[in-house]
Amino acid sequence: MAVTLLAFLLPLLWTALASLGVLPDNSSRPPSWRGSVSLDHFAEVGIAEPAFWQELVTSVLTAACAAAIAVGAGFLAAFGLARAPFRSSRVVTQGFLVLASLPAMAYVIPLSDLMRRVHLLDTFAAVVLSEAAATAPLAVFVLHGAVAQLAPEWEEAAVLDGAGLFRVIGRVVLPLVAPSVVATAVVLFVLDWNMLLVPLVLTSGEIKTIPLGLSDFFTFERELDWPTAAAALIVSLAPVAVLAGIFHRVLNRFALDLRTGE
């Protein structure tokens, strides 16, 4: 148990220490540590990549909007799939999982061309909608499972009371599956936050997300020292780590079980 923990967390601990300026000295025998704790490297990040802090904001906005749209559209469709089953709805639901597994490279090249032709290249809207489309299938699959396992009595009671679709969804279903919805939104936020390929091919400099900024660190003519890179990494990890921490209980509800529609 301890070994596993160590194996997974040590690299991150290493990085965190490096970002604070504490570095291992592998040339001494046995290897030792050197350097004093300082926050200089975090400031360096802003110098090495001046737009880094702005990229942070852009990432938050694009990921939040994309996750919201994907979860919204996905939830509605999931409800429809669960409550109006047809012959092949099981396969269709599985189809969404297959779509969720499809790597972006399969279609980003024509996507960038299409966006250019409709003059949406390098716009906030294009990035958000593309990220949403890439992650919505996963939302559909997960939320379908959540809705499908609800006992139908609640909704039937509401219908008997004269409720229309909106009220059933809003007053009955949503509160019951809220944890799953939140969990899905958090997972999708993380996926959007970390996406590189989609923003990479859809933008020419106006819209920049954190992964794009990080990939800049490693292109032509860049020398970046380890502490500054580590600081950048920690900063890019912090928001999603905090998010996961806040919602950790709810995250249990993110389930990939396939339920047959009841």
């Binding site: 936050w193 990494l233 890019s236 990890l237 780590a241 996961a244």
Partner: peptide, 21 residues
């Protein structure tokens, strides 16, 4: 939560990190 951290790191960040590690 702690064990979730490696997955929270983006593939590109993990690449940068491991180049140095």
């Amino acid at each position: 939560v702690l064990l979730l951290l490696p997955w929270l790191v983006s593939p590109i960040a993990s690449g940068v990190m491991w180049h140095f590690l």
